[in-house]
Amino acid sequence: MEIVGPLVAAILTLMVFSYILGDNVLFKLAAHIFVGVAVGYAIVVIWYQVFAPKFTTGDFIGTAPALFLCFLLVFKIRPVQNSLTSALGNVSLAFVLGVGAALAIGGALLGTLLPQILATANISLNPNHYQNTQNEAGLVEWLNNIIIVLGTVGTFFYFTFAVRANGVLGGLREGFVRFWAGMGRLMVIFTLGALFANTVSSRVALLVSRLQFLAELPGKLLGG
């Protein structure tokens, strides 16, 4: 297996890489094998890690309602529009979405919104609060913080307050929003640039790692 395994892996790797020569039979073959194996493997893991313990360890009673909800979900495999069974399956979905929505609300509010607002609000823009604005480091820190505050508020405005307002104060509000959104737009462009670069870096790492596997293969096969 020490030799056959890596060889199989290498062949499959090359089959996928063959896509750069154009779509072909080998690639399609690899793609379908991949989907099949991935699904099969996930089924095995989920069964052994999630469901089997529920039946074997006497935990059955406590999770019976959950298993019932799972059973209802079966009706969604081949949903018949507007049938009763489909409606029952929807109850399961509703359950999951209800829990998910609650967790998402709590997380977004207590985990992101409040802490992030506080973090921004805690930044002082008063130069006197910086120990050594005379030297370069303090000055830079102060300037950076100004950028962070302006940028955060601006980006938030850019994405959030875009609805046009009417009335006497509407024009005033619009000018205000426009100023901040302009700032935010610039910041978003910087951010997207950096995000793009980091995404490239991530993807390149995946390629490099596969090439590394291929490059080290001969040594492995011959040496081991």
């Binding site: 992101t112 962070i148 940028g151 938030f156 978003v188």
Partner: peptide
């Protein structure tokens, strides 16, 4: 600095 600011605005 700038990315932090931009992402924080997006996160909010």
């Amino acid at each position: 600095v700038p990315t932090l600011a931009g992402v924080r605005g997006i996160l909010l």
